[in-house]
Amino acid sequence: MVMWICGRHSPRLLTVEEGGKWRKAVDGRTVVAVSSLGQDMKDSEENKVGSNFKKKSEKSESGIFRSCVGYCQDPKSAIKGTTQQVEIYVRKVFCISKALTQLLLDVDAASQKEEDEQDASGERRTPHVSLDTRLNNRVLDLRTPANQAIFRVRSHIENFFRQYLLALEFDSIHTPKLLARKINGGASVFCLDYIGKDASLAQSAQLHKQMAISSGFTKVFDIGTYFRSERSSTNRHLTEFVTLNVEMELKYHYNEVMDLVDGLFADIFMQVNQSCANQLDAIAKQYPFEPLKFLPNTLRISFERGVQMHEESGEKIEVHFVGSKLRETDMKNDITVEPRRV
């Protein structure tokens, strides 16, 4: 039986679980494309390749993609590294994409945390990978376990955000990113030519969310990318960013917004801890952090109690109000007040 194997890993013997998948895939067929099965295979010390093939491939550089032709067959002698007696007899190996002998970024070095790069005397054991080097070679940098885990956690957070709001009967909308003119204040915009007309990139979804509420949608949310033309001399700046936006009409009191935000964040934090444990461990190995601590129900205090707490700490606060006089019920019940404070 002829088999085509695609991937960056060398062909090897199969474990019990993998052997079962391959047997099922190739049973009764003459030629089988098994690239998807190859992606499921993981490196293991118990899995070895034939000595002749190993001699030819042991000098291969990291990052090379290969295509192999071989036979799926029962081994002539018992395999000691696995209980599943299935092996692939490689006949031909093709180089699909050859990597540079010296990569611009060492993935192993980029996976190390800062403390592990130095020994007791302060000498570096592995080369330090700067942020500029990472960003200039982002494709290689994203191969590190920590970076891949970060992307997967972000994907989960977006899904948790969406599922929580959908369960509360929110509607998902997509607001425009290319606008005819500047419609949001407070930040500079990226201006561009739109087929002979002036246009700009959206700074936020605020206006369009409010338009949706005015149109009869009582609860909406938007996940999208926005742009702000803010000058910066750093490598990390917010000219382009992703936002999770929520807009809803208030039926009785603005505490409804506090209830929503309280439940939303607590649910996201809880689900991240439960569903992303492996990703969090991978991130912590390179970027150590303390586990996030949070209350299922966020602590709330009244404005009056907040002022009292400041005064008890020895800090005297004088609050002057412009406009309507603050009502006593607002002082006792609300964390914020409507009149402007000076």
Rank of each mutant, 00 (worst) to 15 (best):
R327A: 12
I157V: 15
V49R: 11
H156V: 03
T126M: 11
N159L: 13
L292F: 14
E311V: 09
F303V: 10
N147F: 14
F217W: 10
S275Q: 14
R91A: 12
Y252P: 00
E18C: 10
F227M: 12
T298C: 07
Q39Y: 04
E115M: 05
V242T: 13
Q286A: 11
V246Y: 03
S111F: 02
V69K: 14
F161L: 13
T101F: 02
G185C: 04
V34Q: 01
H208M: 13
V319R: 08
G186Y: 07
P11T: 06
S77W: 03
K332H: 12
K177M: 08
R341V: 15
S10P: 04
R300W: 08
E256V: 03
A110H: 01
A78Q: 13
K219W: 06
I173L: 10
V32P: 00
N52I: 05
V90K: 00
S62N: 05
S232I: 02
A110P: 00
K113G: 08
G306E: 07
T225N: 08
I195T: 02
R327S: 13
V322A: 09
C276R: 00
V322I: 14
T30H: 09
G122S: 04
L244N: 01
L264W: 05
E61M: 04
R340Q: 10
K285E: 11
